[in-house]
Design a protein around this nucleic acid. Sequence first.
DNA 1: ATAATTGCAAACACTTTGCACCTGT
DNA 2: ACAGGTGCAAAGTGTTTGCAATTAT
Lengths: 139, 139
Amino acid sequence: MAGHYTTASRRRIQEFLRNNCDRTVTVADIAFHLKETGNEVNLTTIYRYLDKLSGEGSVIKYAAEKGSQAAYQYVENGKKCDEHLHLQCVRCGCVIHLDCEFMGEISKHVKQDHGFTLQCRKSVLYGTCQKCTQRQKDS
Amino acid sequence: MAGHYTTASRRRIQEFLRNNCDRTVTVADIAFHLKETGNEVNLTTIYRYLDKLSGEGSVIKYAAEKGSQAAYQYVENGKKCDEHLHLQCVRCGCVIHLDCEFMGEISKHVKQDHGFTLQCRKSVLYGTCQKCTQRQKDS
DNA sequence: ATAATTGCAAACACTTTGCACCTGT
DNA sequence: ACAGGTGCAAAGTGTTTGCAATTAT
């Protein structure tokens, strides 16, 4: 496999991304985790690797989502994230893949009634997930 | 009306926002427009005023939407932008309010099938509008 | 051997803040 | 008169870049 070395740092970054594929993480999250586990990695390195992964399509980059930080999410192999929308909880950060039959109806409606061609990759719907809605009620 | 002075700069900023209520604009856009029309206003002033309007709810602020700049959109009086999603064209920047009956179905589905409570205010669906899709085909 | 990756420091871009001065009411 | 608005310069944040040193293949 040309043009791609495997290093310890990259393996650790990727591992962290994979372990958090149900939510988005920031560069700071990654850096913090690595430092905490005794393997500090320079921020620049993280940025560069994420850029690379994002170019390859194995992570999605959401511009400046959390406050003013960009958010990244690992795309599980085989998930066709270009074809469905994502719901993200503003409380816990978890991401739900809207990969159900209803997705087609949304695309269709938006196209037919509004002439709009959806690009799912960059679109995120915000709100609160079930757990967090429940938690909110309890408190 | 306490706590609110009307100044020439603010009037001009608001006018520009209103004239562009069908798209999002950045602080740079506003500054450029004002300068061009011979009424240069300090960036700080624009930021502060937008913050204020955004607090009042008369503009929606989308964090770092265009590149790394925040995008702002004027909310027409009476538009209940909290209750419907917005579609934004990645080419021309125009914004379509999804304030049709179908909106209810989306909320309902997302709630019933995914336990997710939508927050429309911050959610934007990206894609290409009819005009731009056409333009793309032509070229 | 050599192409790719890394860390550091510096540069960048956008935004925010402190403060003295000005303006609308 | 005085609450509120403005501009400037400086500080803050997150991200990117150039370069020399290091490492995986």
